[in-house]
Simulated scan of single mutants.
Amino acid sequence: MATYFDPKSWSPSRAVDLGKRLFDQSWLEQWVTVTTSWVDPVADLGMGTVTALMPDVLMTVLSEGILSRFGGQELTATLLGHDVRATLQVLKVRRRGAHFQTKTVLSRVHWDAHPVEAVTVIAHGVRMIPGVPTKVRASRIDVEGTLTVEALVGWLNEQPLDWSLRVEQNGLIRASHRTRRLTALIDAAITDDLLTIEVHRANWLGFRVPRALVRAPGVRLTDLPHRARVAFAARDEDLIRFRVELPEMTGSFDLAQMRSAIVAGTTLIIF
């Protein structure tokens, strides 16, 4: 049975057998030593001169480089056009047959300035295809995380909605219609892309509205970005716990930029 391995405990030299000289060197010295073994051959990919181990080399060196440089520290990245800032807690890789599986745990995440408490990302069926640029494909990505109700409400208030939202002390959400003088105290949850809203109390012009008259039908979430599917999202006191599933995705990056970003601690770019 395959198990996760920690890139910190798996030297790139074990994957490519560069020699015992690498074992006694620091990681940065290893990085400099192996640079030509995984960057220079990129130009020759079209001529078939790269060995079958090249994806292993790229995956191993990049994962070890990112974890060694940013582990426990704040990382900034541009991911598929979005600005991401987070503290990297875990980055693990394992080979599953012809492909890889990666696990990344982030805390104090800011996705385009929107705060998320913590995120765990597991990418299945990962393939790294060397080239200019280098491509990364994943057959499926599972994202689990938590964010505060306040953060979600703040994001929703930035959207062109007919309702203004505010979080009450009990964690429920007070929704006020912008033009109809209707207010409601609500809770919501998502299961298998179906949004259900529970109305606890509603008022119109200060008068209580019978709950039977303000039942909200379920809303099917369709056309989400990147064909995402929301498996579940539910409130747990002042937090919202969620799981999002993404189908096959492809990204690419420039090896030279990635190497420079790791060495200098600047922004990683995957587009």
Rank of each mutant, 00 (worst) to 15 (best):
152 L>D: 01
256 A>H: 08
224 L>P: 00
76 T>Q: 09
67 L>D: 12
174 R>M: 09
55 P>I: 10
199 V>G: 02
98 A>D: 14
41 P>C: 09
17 D>L: 08
78 T>Y: 11
79 L>F: 14
202 A>R: 13
23 F>T: 06
218 G>K: 07
173 I>P: 06
109 V>S: 10
251 G>W: 02
158 E>D: 06
187 D>Y: 06
145 G>W: 15
2 A>C: 11
199 V>S: 10
195 L>I: 00
132 V>I: 15
86 A>R: 02
57 V>L: 15
71 G>S: 10
116 V>C: 04
206 G>T: 04
230 V>S: 14
52 A>M: 08
20 K>M: 10
52 A>P: 10
89 Q>K: 14
32 V>L: 15
262 I>R: 00
165 L>P: 02
185 L>F: 09
189 A>D: 05
168 E>N: 11
222 T>N: 00
96 R>V: 13
215 R>L: 08
13 S>H: 12
271 F>H: 15
11 S>T: 11
87 T>H: 07
154 G>F: 10
57 V>I: 13
227 R>Y: 09
203 N>M: 07
220 R>T: 05
50 V>N: 02
197 I>G: 01
187 D>P: 03
183 T>W: 03
194 L>A: 15
51 T>M: 06
266 T>K: 01
62 L>F: 15
23 F>K: 05
22 L>C: 13
191 T>W: 05
189 A>P: 00
134 T>A: 05
113 A>L: 05
60 T>W: 09
97 G>Y: 11
150 E>T: 05
250 T>E: 13
164 S>Q: 05
115 P>K: 05
154 G>T: 01
94 R>T: 12
226 H>M: 15
112 D>T: 01
155 W>M: 15
249 M>D: 01
69 R>H: 08
261 A>C: 04
255 L>M: 01
269 I>S: 00
162 D>L: 06
78 T>L: 06
125 G>H: 00
213 L>H: 11
226 H>W: 14
230 V>M: 09
134 T>H: 07
129 I>Q: 12
70 F>P: 11
8 K>D: 14
213 L>A: 13
26 S>M: 07
76 T>G: 08
78 T>P: 08
151 A>P: 00
117 E>F: 06
221 L>S: 06
231 A>E: 14
245 E>V: 03
54 M>F: 08
197 I>H: 03
48 G>I: 06
126 V>Y: 12
6 D>C: 12
245 E>A: 07
123 A>W: 08
180 R>C: 11
148 T>D: 09
144 E>W: 04
121 V>D: 02
103 K>A: 04
224 L>N: 03
212 A>I: 01
170 N>Y: 06
113 A>Q: 04
97 G>T: 02
14 R>A: 10
115 P>Q: 11
51 T>S: 13
149 V>G: 02
270 I>S: 15
31 W>M: 14
204 W>F: 03
234 A>Q: 09
60 T>G: 15
225 P>I: 04
240 I>N: 00
71 G>L: 05
170 N>P: 01
54 M>Y: 10
216 A>P: 00
170 N>R: 01
19 G>L: 02
225 P>R: 07
253 F>Y: 14
79 L>R: 07
241 R>K: 08
87 T>M: 14
269 I>D: 03
254 D>I: 03
263 V>N: 11
157 N>I: 14
263 V>P: 09
128 M>Q: 07
180 R>I: 05
236 D>I: 04
210 P>V: 10
42 V>P: 12
12 P>D: 04
